Simulated assay, not measured.
Amino acid sequence: MKKLVFLLVVLLSVCAFAFAGGVEEKASVAGEPSGQLVIYTSYSNDLQQILIDTFRDKYPKIDVQLIEGGAGELKARVKAEAANPQGDVITGITYSDLNEMKPYLQPYIAENDAALPEDARGATTDGYLTYQVAQCVNLLVNRQLASDLGVEIKGYDDLLNPKLKGKIISANPSNSSSAWDQLVTMLVVMGGLGSEESWEYVEKFTQQLDGKISGSSSAVYKNVFNGEYVVGVTYEAPCIEYIKAGQGDKVELVYMEEGTTASFHGNGILKDCSNLENAKLFMDHLIADETQKHMEKNGTHRQANLNLPTTVDFRIPMDELNLKYRDEQYLSEHRPDIVARWEAIWAKYSK
């Protein structure tokens, strides 16, 4: 009888322990982040794979939904939905967008922010932006077409060659972030921000477009690659993708001999969004060491954490470029005026 009682006690203890373990395991699973995350994104396929797909792998219970579009289109949508936000995060925002977009964002300093270079930290924007990439601008040249035309293209001055009139493609700085960066770079390296000399160059360049402009930034590099245009004013990542894919014999990535600029592009959490905690997790994920190292090794975009060394042969280290300083505070304050002046120039020569 005593043995039977003892066995029953042992059995009950084992069952209780197993039950408690099962409850603990279920509680752990139930505690995993879940719900939704709606991202308004202008990310390329490359960035989606590196940043969003890895986030989905890390948090499989979060239903990540993407609303894709150009940077200007998505900013307009956020403004229109301000009274009832339909998204949680917007991508592709720069410091010069901050005055415009700050009323629609809420601050958050992501984990690992201190590991980034000082200029790339969210703290520089009071937490309103979390930067994930550094973007340089450049020219993309169709080698065969340039050779047939007998032109050498090494910088901005070369784009004023009369032989290139109507053979240059650019996006619209009013609604394309990469075209805005190109306009800024022209102003910086061809005379300086606020100078008439730089605007004289912009006017001459605009005449070279011969009344044609691209409706999207992606059409710029694609149409150069496809042979529709000799040269495009574009940005680094898609051009590096061509080089990485072994297409360097067809197109040449040219960093302007007058200099180039680099800007950090980031993400903001939308004010009064429905999935705030998941949005914070996404920001943490973007600048985690593992994510930034993965981007440096496998992506065509430069990671925001420029403290990481360049380990791939398809990307020139940042310190080897002729980088010029861009005054982000000035650009943020004067962006509407700069865009308005460019639009006036465009209206003059696009008739």
Rank of each mutant, 00 (worst) to 15 (best):
F6L: 15
L11T: 12
S13H: 03
V14Q: 10
V14R: 10
C15D: 02
F17W: 14
F19G: 07
G21P: 04
G22E: 10
K26N: 10
P33R: 10
S34Y: 09
T41Y: 04
S42D: 13
S42P: 08
D46P: 07
Q48L: 10
Q48A: 06
Q48T: 14
Q49D: 12
Q49P: 01
T54E: 09
T54W: 06
D57L: 12
P60L: 10
K61T: 06
V64P: 03
G69C: 05
G69T: 07
G72D: 04
E73D: 13
A76E: 15
A76K: 15
A80R: 13
E81M: 11
A82N: 06
A83I: 04
A83Q: 11
A83R: 09
N84C: 09
N84A: 14
N84F: 07
Q86H: 14
D88R: 04
V89D: 01
T91L: 00
G92C: 11
P103T: 05
Q106W: 02
Y108T: 03
Y108P: 07
A110L: 06
P117C: 07
D126M: 05
G127L: 03
C136N: 13
N138M: 08
L139Y: 01
L140H: 02
L149E: 05
I153M: 02
D157V: 05
L159K: 06
L159H: 03
G166P: 06
K167V: 01
K167A: 00
I168K: 05
S170H: 12
S174Q: 13
S176D: 11
S177D: 13
A179L: 08
V184N: 02
V189W: 00
V189P: 00
G194F: 10
E197Q: 15
W199A: 00
E200M: 09
E203N: 12
L209F: 10
S216Y: 08
S217P: 00
K222W: 04
N223A: 09
F225W: 14
G227F: 10
Y235S: 14
E236W: 05
E236V: 05
P238G: 05
I240W: 00
I240M: 08
I243K: 04
K244R: 15
A245S: 13
G248R: 11
G248T: 03
D249H: 11
Y255E: 04
G259K: 06
T260K: 06
T260N: 03
A262V: 14
F264Q: 03
F264L: 13
I269V: 14
N278G: 05
N278A: 07
N278S: 05
K280C: 03
L281W: 01
D289T: 11
K293S: 07
H294S: 11
H294F: 12
M295H: 04
E296S: 08
K297W: 00
K297L: 15
N305Y: 07
N307T: 08
L308R: 07
F314A: 06
M318A: 10
D319R: 07
N322L: 11
R326G: 01
Q329P: 00
L331P: 00
E333K: 15
H334M: 12
I338L: 13
I338C: 01
V339G: 01
W342R: 01
E343W: 01
I345L: 15
W346L: 01
S350P: 02
K351N: 15
